[in-house]
Design a protein around this nucleic acid. Structure first.
Length: 877
RNA sequence: GCCGAAGUGGCGGAAUUGGCAGACGCGCCAGGUUCAGGACCUGGUGGGGGUUAACCCCGUGGAGGUUCGAGUCCUCUCUUCGGCACCA
């Protein structure tokens, strides 16, 4: 077997070790590192990995310094579940799985620099994951400068300062990029454990089908929303698929509109309030006697016939009248029980309850009722809306349900596909698009766009509103109730009774890492608190500077380790910092990042967020980590269905390598179609075809049936003939171009054509054979190294200069040109390749067949494209 | 509902970006080789018509349009896949 032999050679000689710093042009080619599952490598993995490997090998032959690393994203739920099931430490199984993955990756001949291998579960690695968390904790976001800054630089307002140190501390805590908050968890009493979202199906545990309830728990959040603006606008400069950018933009969900305050005080105090607002302007925080809403359609203010606040809105209590109290309490309690899913998917009918109070519409002074309904989310905008039923689908449904008046204030100007103009103006149909204002006082007749900007300005002048931007993006719930994840480097201070004081202290940097404790067993302890609460006291209760603490027992989510692994590859063994700044500046950004589209949003957004914080804190030198991103397509089974054990259509890479070889697997996956095409169905016949091609390449160069591989007789040390040179140089040109554009399928097709041609040649110039071996080597490295040796070379070809093509050897003396009449193909002529228009037209007219067709016809126009075609246009066309 | 991607032979897919549609591979057909099977080699292979020759017509999901010329550009439309989905 030649493949394992070459793999050993590469490893023994350190062929693919990257230099600490690049010399000359650099290429950082990165794969999305895998989660080492117990099932081993899936054929989807080698697809992207082969693509980056080809690019990396090609770049080396072009003289670039290449960084091409691999590692493992090894924290995760399956290992934890396995540990619970077998009561063995998760690290044991994880390391077995990594070993298997490493074996499989090496078997495929990827040119990784294995000295840089990392796993997110390495203590020496997650030490720096914890360190980055400390940077988050130590940062606040300066909205004026749009960047994260050290918490020490946070300006403290005087009134806070006067309240004392505790107030200052709380104020800082409220501004940190990592902060604590109560967030609901999926608590399953029957299993006695907290479940991840993916372990909950229809409100029941995936395993066992036990009921799951939502229970608030103190957890860590990351303030990713602070970076929403930059995460969106910086997408523009990235060489990413537009579809992925669209997905991220959609996820960030920027919208523009206005915030407006509705007065909720007593009617007779409305005028003085308005007066006061005119002088004070729009306050940063709304005062108690108003309800602040966010709307993208301030132009529909005149059509607001009621308001809605979320059940969790702080004003619920004060707005509820005695008569409504019972109904409101019941409704809010019910809403609290529902999960987000229940509130969306299952709620076909709008629900809500009247508070008994009303507010005053600032544009016309009219009083409108305030309702509570769970179709308004506390987590978006201000948690309160003005409802314009005539021009919002949800409000329309709600108003119909509860018989609230509907007033049309936007004239569509004509019938729409859904409704007539008359229905819309009569408010019996909803219209949500833009139009012309009606029933809007002095604003009547304005277009939606004009109206929006005009009324926003007017409200701002009166101190009643202001332009505002909102994002769908939410802060990132960053803690998990798991034992197989990075511990937080955080300590909770305890008082003399052993109760938490509420003060938090971070583990000093020089005491990192905080390693995971050894657990006696892995069974759930039956409480919603994290499983690490079972750890031994010496881990759980450290004493620092004479103060006793309890460690944070939440762990970080799996995303944490993958947020920055691309940085550690640059300097994986550095014990004194995350990455040497000189090394970072030399290698970053990642030039090519290939992985599955399933990470389009979360991983790529989280990683960009972390990178931006590290950029703001001076750890990295680029604002974005991944310059070019490519998503490989999904590979389906032979039946065209997604591969799964239950369907029995899983293709095992080990089996393919055993039967056909690694080069065949690599080449086949690249030949299946465009890299990014998705999905692609596996075809064993296709694998066979590719194997046949590699066999023909071998036979083209090597003597068959010889004891030892020797160059076959047809391969001779002679200069190529003119046609041979043409094929050779065309192939070099096409393959070079195709590798640059990641069009591996066509590159392979071009080399097949080369092979088909030269197999028929009785004499095959050795120089041409060598060039082909070089061209094919990034794709099928084992075979090509072997052929290179057979052709008489001693070392590896991995750094041999890439073949160059000579345009003058490609050019033909004469070319065949299609002749068209009325745009239809009617004949072909052979002309000198440099023939001018006149010569081409003459040649076409002289062709017997064309001449006959042109006889008795009036040619009104002749289109001649030199080197391409001749087209005669007749009268009457 | 909104956003995005894609529809080309029996199949996977090419087409230097407006210039000979179907490269290359699979499959299939015929022939060669072989005890046989497989492997390998040679030739053919979009559909229809034709005196089976020359040649003609049709053809890139569908309908229009722009152009001397459209798989490629524009408008409308259908289908499939992926994502988001009470975000005011």
């Amino acid at each position: 077997m030649i493949e394992p032999r070459w793999q050993k050679t590469w490893e023994a000689q350190g062929t693919f070790a990257s230099p600490r710093l690049p010399q000359g042009e650099k290429l950082y080619a990165l794969d999305m590192f895998p989660y080492p599952s117990g099932d081993g490598l899936h054929v989807g993995h080698p697809e992207g990995y082969t693509a980056t490997d080809i690019v990396a090998r090609y770049a080396r032959m072009c003289g670039k310094s290449v960084l091409h690393p691999m590692g493992f994203d090894a924290f995760g739920l399956p290992a934890e579940e396995h540990a619970i099931r077998t009561n063995t430490p998760p690290r044991v199984q994880t390391e077995k799985n990594i070993e298997n993955f490493r074996r499989q990756l090496k078997m495929l001949g990827f040119s990784y620099d294995w000295d840089r291998e990392i796993s997110t579960t390495d203590v020496a690695y997650f030490r720096w994951t914890q360190w980055i968390f400390l940077q988050m904790y130590d940062s606040w976001f300066d909205h004026d400068q749009q960047r994260g800054r050290p918490i020490a630089e946070l300006p403290i307002p005087d009134e806070v300062q006067q309240e004392g140190d505790d107030a200052v501390r709380r104020y800082q805590d409220d501004h940190r990029l990592a902060y604590q908050s109560d967030a609901p968890v999926n608590w399953c009493p029957a299993l006695g454990t907290v479940l991840a979202n993916e372990e909950v199906v229809d409100g029941k545990s995936e395993r066992g089908g036990h009921p799951v309830v939502r229970k608030p728990l103190r957890q860590w959040m990351l303030r990713i929303t602070a970076y929403a603006q930059r995460l969106e606008s910086d997408l523009e400069g990235l060489d990413w698929p537009e579809s992925i950018k669209a997905l991220q933009r959609n996820w960030i969900g920027r919208s523009t509109g206005a915030e407006v305050d509705f007065y909720i005080g007593a009617g007779e105090t409305y005028d003085p309030w308005c007066q006061a607002r005119r002088s004070t302007g729009f306050p940063r925080q709304p005062d108690e006697d108003c309800l602040r809403v966010y709307t993208t359609r301030p132009d529909t203010l005149f059509g607001a016939t009621y308001m809605v606040i979320a059940p969790e809105h702080p004003a619920v209590e004060s707005l509820t009248t005695a008569a409504q109290a019972a109904a409101v309490n019941a409704y809010c309690e019910q809403a609290a029980q529902k999960s987000d899913l229940d509130r969306t998917d299952l709620a076909k009918e709008k629900t809500g309850v009247f508070t008994g109070s009303s507010a005053i519409n600032p544009v016309n002074g009219e009083s409108i009722p305030i309702w509570i309904a769970d179709y308004v989310l506390i987590s978006y905008g201000t948690g309160a809306i003005m409802a314009v039923p005539a021009h919002d689908q949800r409000d329309f449904e709600f108003a119909q349900q509860f018989e609230i008046p509907i007033l049309a204030v936007v004239d569509p100007g004509g019938d729409t596909p859904e409704a007539t103009r008359a229905d819309i103006l009569a408010a019996t149909a909803v219209f949500t698009a833009e139009g012309t204002a009606v029933h809007s006082g002095v604003y009547d007749g304005l277009s939606t766009a004009e109206f929006k900007s005009r009324i926003t300005d007017d409200l701002a002048a009166q101190g009643l509103g202001r332009a505002a931007v909102n994002y769908k993006l939410r802060d990132w719930l960053f803690s998990r109730q798991r034992f197989w994840g990075e511990p937080f480097p955080v300590l909770h201070e305890l008082d003399a009774e052993g109760q938490p004081t509420g003060r938090v202290r971070t583990v000093p940097e020089d005491q990192l890492p905080v390693d995971l404790p050894e657990l006696a067993d892995f069974k759930p302890h039956g409480r919603p608190e994290p499983p690490l609460d079972k750890a031994a006291d010496e881990w759980l209760y450290p004493v620092l500077d004479g103060v006793r603490y309890k460690r944070e027992t939440n762990t970080m989510p799996q995303w944490a380790g993958s947020c920055w692994y691309y940085l550690r590859f640059l300097d994986p063994h550095n014990a004194s910092c995350l990455v040497d700044p000189q090394v970072e500046a030399a290698w970053m950004p990642v030039d090519l990042y290939i992985g599955g589209a399933e990470h389009a949003v979360l991983h790529l957004l989280y990683a960009r967020f972390w990178h931006k914080l590290l950029y703001d804190r001076g750890v990295v030198s680029t604002p974005e980590p991944f310059r070019k991103l490519v998503n490989q397509g999904m590979i389906l089974g032979e039946d065209g269905e997604k591969m799964s054990k239950s369907r029995g259509n899983v293709i095992n890479p080990d089996k393919i390598v055993t039967e056909y070889g690694a080069d065949t697997l690599r080449l086949y996956e690249m030949f299946m179609g465009p890299l990014t095409k998705s999905p692609k169905a596996w075809s064993t016949q296709g694998v066979n075809g590719v194997r046949g091609f590699l066999d023909r390449v071998w036979r083209m160069i090597v003597e068959e049936d010889a004891e030892q591989p020797v160059v076959c007789g047809a391969v001779q040390d002679v200069a190529p003939t003119e046609p041979q040179n043409r094929v050779l140089h065309k192939t070099i040109r096409a393959v070079t171009h195709d590798l640059e554009t990641l069009s591996f399928n066509t590159a392979i097709a071009r080399m097949m054509e080369f092979t088909n041609f030269f197999l028929k040649e009785d004499v095959r110039p050795k120089s041409a054979m060598q060039q082909l071996v070089l061209l094919l080597s990034p794709l099928a490295p084992h075979l090509c190294e072997e052929l290179w040796q057979v052709l008489g070379h001693s070392g590896t070809l991995a750094y041999h200069p890439w073949p160059k093509y000579d345009e003058s050897l490609i050019a033909e003396d004469t070319v065949e040109i299609p002749v068209q009449i009325q745009g239809r193909l009617r004949g072909k002529i052979a002309v000198p390749s440099d023939a001018d228009r006149d010569a081409m037209e003459t040649a076409a007219r002289t062709d017997p067949k064309i001449a006959q067709l042109l006889a008795d016809q009036t040619v009104v126009k002749v289109v001649v494209v030199p080197g391409r075609l001749v087209n005669f246009v007749m009268k009457g066309s």
